[in-house]
């Protein structure tokens, strides 16, 4: 199935889904890019900027496809720079401020583990353009996972301070993990059409992989999180997204159509 043979009835759900994937990549990429020039040392600064660029690349591909599926002539740039916070469909996890280095690394690890499993599964999507993007993005996300997992082990099983900071980050981030695996009507429609994967299986695999690494890193997950954050997929966001967009979208908002 491709853009031409796509069932009209499924277009709205697919557009919504592509926004979720694309916005996750875009917003996470922006948060990573905030480290540019502020990394703990030169080599890691370069590493984080590379991860940011990878994410922006995924976002561009996914949002371009979203625009094509929508069929209203919107480009990836239109979707990235000319939507307001309530129109963004990213999970709240990726919009949280970058925090300290441990926070950025824990988020990257939790997200990359999820994204690797997701893109692996999406390679089997019957919607060919999405399967193609997934195959390409998977290679890069595997590196994100290798890099962040190595850091999790170092920091968790490192000094008293690095352990404390990493554990704090995990405690703070854990309540944002549930949203990644939420199933609603949109996702159900796409799963039935074999465009999106079954999230239940994905969650079990994610949980097993995350637990293995956390154990190696001597870290523990909060046993009874009081609350699992939700709403990002419906456009309900934390206050942080607005500030992020104000910075990210400033140029296009102040000088519409500006190019260089």
């Amino acid at each position: 199935m491709n853009l031409e043979t796509l069932d009209t009835a499924i277009r709205p759900a697919l557009f919504e889904y592509l926004l979720r994937l694309g916005d996750d990549a875009l917003i996470l990429g922006h948060r990573l890019s905030e480290w540019c020039g502020h990394g703990p040392y030169l080599e890691e600064d370069i590493a984080l900027a590379n991860l940011a660029l990878d994410c922006l690349g995924h976002a561009e591909a996914l949002l371009t496809l979203a625009g094509q599926v929508e069929g209203e002539g919107r480009t990836a740039d239109d979707l990235a720079f000319l939507r307001d916070a309530y129109e963004f469909r990213n999970a709240q996890m990726v919009e949280l401020p970058r925090g300290d280095f441990a926070f950025t690394i824990v988020r990257q690890f939790l997200f990359a583990t999820y994204a690797c499993l997701l893109y692996e599964a999406l390679q089997q999507s019957v919607f060919e353009p999405l399967a193609g993007i997934a195959a390409k993005a998977l290679k890069e996300m595997r590196y994100h996972l290798r890099h962040s997992r190595e850091w999790i082990r170092c920091l968790g099983d490192g000094t008293e301070e690095s352990h404390r900071r990493t554990q704090n980050a995990l405690d703070e981030l854990w309540m944002y993990t549930g949203e990644l695996f939420e199933v609603d009507d949109t996702l159900q429609t796409l799963t039935q059409a074999h465009i999106a994967p079954d999230m239940t299986a994905l969650y079990s695999a994610w949980n097993a992989q995350v637990m293995t690494t956390l154990q190696e890193a001597t870290l523990t997950v909060p046993e009874n999180p009081p609350y699992m954050a939700t709403g990002g997929r419906r456009g309900h966001h934390t206050e942080h997204l607005g500030y992020l967009l104000a910075e990210m979208q400033f140029l296009q908002r102040a000088y519409p159509g500006a190019k260089w």
């Binding site: 890691e44 590493a47 290798r146 190595e150």
Partner: peptide
């Protein structure tokens, strides 16, 4: 980590 930095 040296290997990963070298790659980047």
């Amino acid at each position: 980590m040296a290997l990963q930095h070298a790659r980047d």
